[in-house]
Structures are given as structure tokens and as C-alpha cells.
Simulated assay, not measured.
Amino acid sequence: MLKYTEEHEWLKQDGDEVIVGITSHASEQLGDVVFIELPEVGREVEAGEEIVVIESVKAASDIVAPVAGVITAVNEALPDTPGAVNDDAMSAWFFRIKPQGGVDLSGFMDEAAYNDLIG
């Protein structure tokens, strides 16, 4: 089951890790994505820390870590094919993170609450 942030990220638990991407709504708002800079694997991050740079023809934006933890993997194909985010934002994940203290996504929005947010 997916969870969502107010920053338009989707989160999916996979064992003791969380997979993170941006929502289709965020992709549509950005327009054509032309550049993505991902964090280093092994980097320790704090919740709310800007860790991904994403640039489109319309704007530059940052993606923040939804939880504190360690980056365990990045989608290595994205920097070479940033348009994949526009093609299918829900499958073009950015990074995996192992949260400090274990996975707890209960504080994030479900799909209905996210749909209310974006109206």
C-alpha cells in the first residue's frame, strides 16, 4: 500500500526499507523533467533534508527525505533518462531508504487523503 507526503512523494514499504518517488501530480506540475541528481548510497539523512535535485523545463525543485535514515539504493537509470518520471511517475522511483528505528509510515497520507490535498 502506498503512502503520500505533502511534498507530493509516494512511499512504499519493502521489508525494512522505504522506496520513494514523486507522484503523477508532481510530475504533471513540473512538466518535462530534464535533469535529476540523486543522493549517494550510504548517505545518512534527516527527515526533511533536501536530497534529490530535479529540474524541468518549468522549474527546479528538491525532493526531501520523508524519514531519517540511510540511503540504501538509487535508481541509477534516472539521471540518464529523467523523462521516465513523466512517462510513469509511479514506477520511476528515486531512492530506497532504511529508516532509523524501523519503518513506520502511519503518519503519512493514504490515497484518499492525498487526493483531497491535490483537489
Rank of each mutant, 00 (worst) to 15 (best):
A92Y: 04
V67H: 01
V34P: 01
A77N: 14
V74F: 04
V52P: 01
K58N: 12
F94H: 14
V52K: 03
M90G: 06
H8T: 08
L117A: 14
P82L: 12
Q13I: 01
S91C: 11
P79Q: 15
A60G: 11
L11I: 09
T23L: 04
Q29I: 07
G107A: 13
V53G: 07
T81I: 15
I63G: 04
G48E: 14
L2F: 14
V57Y: 11
T81Q: 15
V103G: 06
L2V: 12
A73G: 11
A92N: 06
V52N: 08
F35K: 14
S27W: 00
P39F: 11
I36F: 10
I118S: 09
G42R: 00
V64Q: 14
I22A: 00
F108E: 08
V85T: 05
V64P: 08
A89Q: 02
D80M: 12
Y114I: 11
D14R: 15
V103E: 05
A47D: 10
I19L: 09
E17V: 11
A26R: 01
D88F: 11
I19F: 01
I97M: 09
L105Q: 11
L38V: 07
E55M: 10
S91H: 14
G102P: 05
P66H: 09
K58C: 07
S24P: 01
I51D: 01
V70N: 02
Q100D: 14
I63C: 04
G102A: 05
A60Q: 09
K58W: 11
E37Y: 07
I54N: 12
Y4C: 02
H25K: 12
P79E: 15
P66I: 09
G21C: 01
E40Q: 11
V85P: 03
L105T: 08
V70G: 02
V57F: 14
V64I: 15
N86K: 04
I63N: 02
A47K: 15
L117P: 03
Y4E: 01
G69Q: 02
S24C: 06
G69E: 02
I97V: 15
E6C: 10
V85D: 00
S106M: 10
W93N: 01
T81W: 13
A89S: 10
L11D: 05
N86L: 02
K12T: 04
V57S: 12
Q13H: 02
D110W: 08
A92F: 05
I118T: 14
G69C: 06
L30M: 15
